[in-house]
């Protein structure tokens, strides 16, 4: 069968698959390190991981291929995206070098390391291939399970301890103990009235009928943006879009248009007419 055939060399189809998907995987990896924004890097890395899952499947590691998709692209990359959202999506990496020439030295080191690694593989005597067909004869999942629960059972048990420790560690790291009692709603209300700064709820963001995104500050009557309208998180990240100039220009244009119109109608009745009514 194909498994037997795959024992000594790979089929043409697999070679085709390797060269196409391998190229995409390398491009994805390069994009991961070259993209300015973390969220783009994460998406490129997710693509590379999916391609690696296909390679696992092609190599006869059916269980690992599925686990790769479920664990890496499903859980780990989503966790990454979650943290990217938490930390700030648009927070781009600063490109200023803190150590002079560090980037070029790093590239040189990487290149040297790559050459060393690839030359090492080239020199190794990897001429014979047994193929996975024999080992997968009783099913890949069954074979992996048989090894996992006999030869590697101790490592498997330790893995459980590791996962528990990691879960507890994550909770300890992100949990913050509250040192004082939480204020009740009543106390908060009294405090707000006493301070007398902002009694009603905060004004909503967005400019009515123009922009209603949450990152656009609402405009005051004189056209200046009011920072009060945008959420504190966005304000801290500096992610507020300012449309005040645009809005002022629009207003100016509108005033000019209405003036033109009024001049034309100065002799007519003073009654206000909407343009579509006037055209009838």
């Amino acid at each position: 069968m194909t498994a037997q055939l795959a024992a000594y060399s790979t089929s043409t189809g697999e070679a085709f698959q390797f060269w196409i998907l391998g190229t995409v995987a390398v491009i994805g990896a390069l994009c991961t390190i070259l993209m300015k924004r973390a969220v783009h890097s994460a998406l490129c890395l997710a693509g590379t991981m999916i391609i690696l899952a296909v390679f696992y499947l092609a190599n006869g590691a059916y269980f690992l291929g599925v686990v790769q998709i479920v664990v890496y692209t499903g859980a780990i990359m989503m966790l990454f995206l979650f943290v990217v959202m938490l930390v700030g999506v648009t927070a781009a990496d600063s490109l200023k070098e803190t150590i002079k020439g560090q980037r070029w030295l790093a590239l040189l080191c990487g290149l040297g390391f790559g050459v060393l690694l690839i030359a090492g593989i080239g020199n190794a005597s990897l001429t014979e291939f047994n193929g996975i067909g024999q080992a997968n004869a009783g099913g890949n999942v069954e074979g992996v399970a048989a090894l996992l629960f006999t030869k590697y059972v101790f490592a498997f048990e330790i893995t459980g301890a590791l996962l528990i420790t990691a879960a507890v560690g994550a909770m300890v790291l992100t949990h913050r103990e509250r040192t004082e009692r939480a204020k009740t709603q009543r106390e908060l209300a009294v405090e707000r009235v006493r301070s007398g700064k902002q009694l009603p709820p905060l004004p909503a963001p967005g400019v009515y009928a123009r922009h209603n995104a949450v990152d656009i500050a609402g405009l005051l009557p004189d056209g200046t943006p009011s920072d009060l309208t945008v959420s504190k998180t966005l304000r801290e990240r500096g992610q507020i879009r300012d449309v005040s100039q645009e809005a002022l220009n629009d207003l100016k244009a509108l005033e000019q248009r209405s003036e033109e119109r009024l001049e034309r109608r100065a002799v007519g009745p003073a009654k206000f007419q909407r343009p579509e009514e006037a055209s009838k």
Binding site: D93, R103, G114
Partner: peptide
């Protein structure tokens, strides 16, 4: 391919400064 991807990853660790990347 694995060696190439590893090298790209190692270079990325050296040149990037965003902890997430």
């Amino acid at each position: 391919l694995a060696a190439l991807l590893f090298t790209i990853g190692a270079t990325g660790v050296l040149i990037r400064r965003n902890a997430i990347v």
